[in-house]
Design a protein around this nucleic acid. Structure first.
Lengths: 220, 220, 220, 220
DNA sequence: CATGAATGAGAGTTCATTCAT
DNA sequence: GATGAATGAACTCTCATTCAT
């Protein structure tokens, strides 16, 4: 989850057609792939320069195309940014979908894995949190983006609540825990961590461990 | 603490000198006052438009002066922004200085007061957190600003550690608490809350209560 | 005469050839037809947006083809515009060719019919005069286009002179009339009317009646 | 009347103030003068390239200033164009205001003078008619500009009607003349002439003489 | 022929900054 | 200090045109 590399990986391999001529699907997929590539270039520029320094020409340069071509794929800067936001939010949601096979795992392990993935993400692609910080800042003045995060947080809360409930039930977590409230606390703590520990994944460990300890409570 | 109004309040009125002509000190004081006034105008513009939409001309307009005059007080946009950052960080640090009279208070009450002040701040001047989010985002790409926050966080940690230690000692808090680690967790949770609950102070209560519960542990 | 619908009507349908494959002639005919179709699309775009707002892409869109295909029929924008000018001037000349059967008619009636056709044209396709105004304006800076109008005016003058001469001879018009001079006056008055009365055909009546009265002079 | 040079001449000389420091009026007049200068540069560019080829950068170049400065004086291209239209319409109205001293002159002479001024204008500044043709063309798609011309034509009609009435009364003109109708005819003829005879003032003479003959009628 | 993709040139506009007064 | 004027740099966006397929 949370793997920025997913921004690329999301490119689903199109089925190779037998005919030499590209069919409709592969054509549209090629165009979609291109758009993804451009959104990724924008994402990187955003990580390095922020919204303030985000320039269409530089995004195009990063993608290796003429800046006018960018306008062929995106009606304007705003749409390109929307695309970046969509992609990143989609990436965030990966790994937060309660999977059937997870139900068997110990909740404690699942929560730990969730945290570990976060730390790993900070190690692998710290720029993702820079971009997130930018978008979060923007979300405070931009209703539509705000809505996206609210919706995203609801899903995240649901995911965590599921784990917490299971943990309480299995006596792995503190019996007094109110799953939803704890989920809210976890989300904010994690969110704050990405800012506080920007780029230094190792700093995240202790607060996350502390959080786990609190969640386990006297149950541990 | 954390009162945005402080941005203005910090402007301490200097006693008018007897002479009709302003003396050196009052001139420099007037100049400093003007600089504070401008930084405040910039702060408001920043809250409404973000760094991306921050314009020297609009700042000047808000302050009621000609835009060219801005350059008499700040060498450039960057310096003006630095000034805003300085002011806001200074505001943040207010209320985090362990005061002698506090030592007598119960640590639990002191922590609660700290949290309440935060909620109040969100109610009174939510724009401060918008600005903070902007600056936090920038701090992830900007070393000097990052350093300011690191230093600020150290002070904050120290402040919280003091309270936590006292609380453990007085058996108000969980005996197993490692004050510094808990302080780090508190800071990140609070930081995340300001984003998650942007503008809706009421949402902050439950996570903060949860946090208190955790800190008190079986001691409660 | 002067019927904008002629822009389309001029497209004479070529009889389909027996062979299933289109032969040279029908191909070139189809191509010519397509060119006329495109010129008409350009004419309409010109009427709505003027030269300033004339866009190759929009012309293509109106014609229902890809904009790149436009370049298969016209080397460039300039050639397309030339084509529009040619078509419109050709339309203008229709009805100004002295016809044998007209010789029998009373000059007064012929002149009146000429004016009526003009009024009708303004009623039916006012956009033609918008396009004409655009091309007239351009003709004042563009020698080749100017030449086209000068030539066109010569034909128009000849047409009117014929009527006027006949009218003087038949004592229908003022005996003192110098046909060529009056023709020039008529042309300019008509030309000015199309601007002054743009889109409001009813306003053209009175000046045209006045003109007729003047031409008839004491003869009437 | 109709003197393009008036575009410049309209610059009313500001009264020199005694004080070395420029007063409010002269300052504002200087700015207004600058605006007039820029509008004139736009007018010339418009005459040479038409609306289609009108470029802010070139207008600035003609005026000898940076193109950004143009935006200091005019909010945008549209406002600059509006200014050009205003100036030209103002120029047109000069000489069409019935003056008291004219009442004594023979109407025939006054009408002739009006026509002569037109011919002279075509000789002196033919570019004015090029610009007029552009604006007329635009007026056919642009309501606000259209309104300006409608209003202008009303004044022109009034001016001519005054002369014609006086002429009829003094038996200089055809007794059957309906002044207002004739005025309309005159306006359209003149308007058409400026297009037909673009740049060749000598061609205007014969139609205008014809027009005069018609107006005088059997009275002459 | 037809088209989606691409591009160079250039448009209007904005903005931080400078400068003469 | 203060300000109106000016400017260079750079921005987003558009468009006619070209080209590979």
């Amino acid at each position: 989850m949370l793997m920025a590399s997913n921004v690329t990986d999301r490119t689903k391999p199109k089925p190779a057609t037998a005919s030499g001529k590209p069919n409709r699907i592969s054509v549209s997929s090629k165009s979609a792939e291109r758009r993804r590539h451009l959104a990724r270039a924008a994402y990187q520029a955003l990580a390095e320069k922020g919204f303030e320094g985000l320039r269409m020409r530089e995004i195009a340069r990063r993608a290796g195309i003429n800046h006018a071509t960018l306008h062929y794929y995106f009606a304007g800067k705003e749409q390109l940014i929307d695309s970046v936001v969509d992609h990143i939010v989609q990436d965030l949601s990966i790994g937060r979908n309660p999977r059937v096979e997870d139900a068997a795992l110990e909740p404690r392990q699942r929560l730990k894995a969730h945290f570990n993935a976060l730390v790993q993400q900070m190690r692998d692609s710290p720029e993702m949190f820079t971009v997130l910080a930018e978008i979060h800042a923007r979300s405070m003045r931009d209703r539509p983006i705000r809505s996206i995060f609210v919706k995203n947080d609801r899903n995240w809360t649901k995911f965590l609540t599921g784990i917490l409930q299971a943990g309480v039930q299995k006596k792995e977590f503190d019996a007094n825990l109110v799953p939803e409230v704890a989920a809210e606390a976890i989300i904010s703590l994690v969110r704050g961590l990405t800012v506080t520990c920007a780029g230094r994944a190792e700093l995240m460990q202790r607060p996350l461990d502390q959080l786990l300890t609190w969640i386990e409570g006297r149950a541990s």
